[in-house]
Amino acid sequence: MSKLLPWIAGAALVALPFIYNSPYPLHIIVIILIWSFVYTSWSVMGRFGLVSLGHGGFLGVGAYVNALLWNNFGLTPWIGIPLAMLAAAGLAVLIAYPCSRFRITGHYFALVTMALSAIVLQVITATRDVTGGSLGYTPQRVPGGSSLFAFQFTDKETWYWIALAIWGGGLFVRWYVDRSMMRYALEAISEDEDAASAAGVHVTAEKLKITALSAAMTALGGALYCQYQMFISPDTVSGISASLQMVFASVVGGIYVLLGPTVGAVITIMLAEVLRIGFGTAAVGWDNFVYGILLVLFIIYLPQGIVGSLMAKLRGARVGS
């Protein structure tokens, strides 16, 4: 029965737009799916103690590289997005390699990667002639609105299925890593790098692999967000705040469980929406304030996150009975 549950849930999700396709809720669900994918991408490495605050940078590279290639060279996102993912992976290796060689781990790794987020934000803002700077950037729309070549679609249903597929793909990647031998190596590295290399693990190679994977996935999320919203600004897809957002949501949901980052996305996005609708412009920035308080509370009282703690409770109950 529990084996069937994911398939039933998956089928229900795929069928959703046939039953219910009210535009606003569907829009919120698409946004939730895209960010769930991004947060899951972060957690792919974050769960192994590799806490990166540089993912805002990878998100920005994904969004801007793809959009710039489309606007300036007419390159289809079918090629632009993979190129953007490669660029993000390359940037990730550029940062992660020296970090690994010089044993910059834990808090120091978070600080170094945080600088990366800030740098990407600065570069986007400073090169305003090319990127539009802090005013944001819009990919050129194709006449008629929808085009497979341009990866632009006007109807929400199509976007829902795209986002659902990508989100499912993200969960699959994380699940796959979790059941691979790579998980053993990364858990070992997170505990004791020397002991891991005494078991034959090439510590730097394993770290670079997971970092490049996580960065490329995050870039895909950024490009997807751009194609869906048809507008990006440096503050939403890059910078330290975007990175912190990923950490907030993942910690709230629980980084050690597959669906943790997804639940984190649901909670944080719903919270932002409720504040926006309930208080309007009077509540601008409140969501970040509430996230901050939540993050502190969660780290102290519920470090496993909501899903993680629930599952531990359930498991405890099952063992107890």
Partner: peptide, 19 residues
């Protein structure tokens, strides 16, 4: 220096895989 986040078997299997 065991890896406490892994089981006993996983500790040894890790070495068997990467060794």
């Amino acid at each position: 220096r065991p890896f406490r986040r892994l089981t006993i078997f996983e500790n040894v299997a890790l070495a068997g895989y990467y060794g």
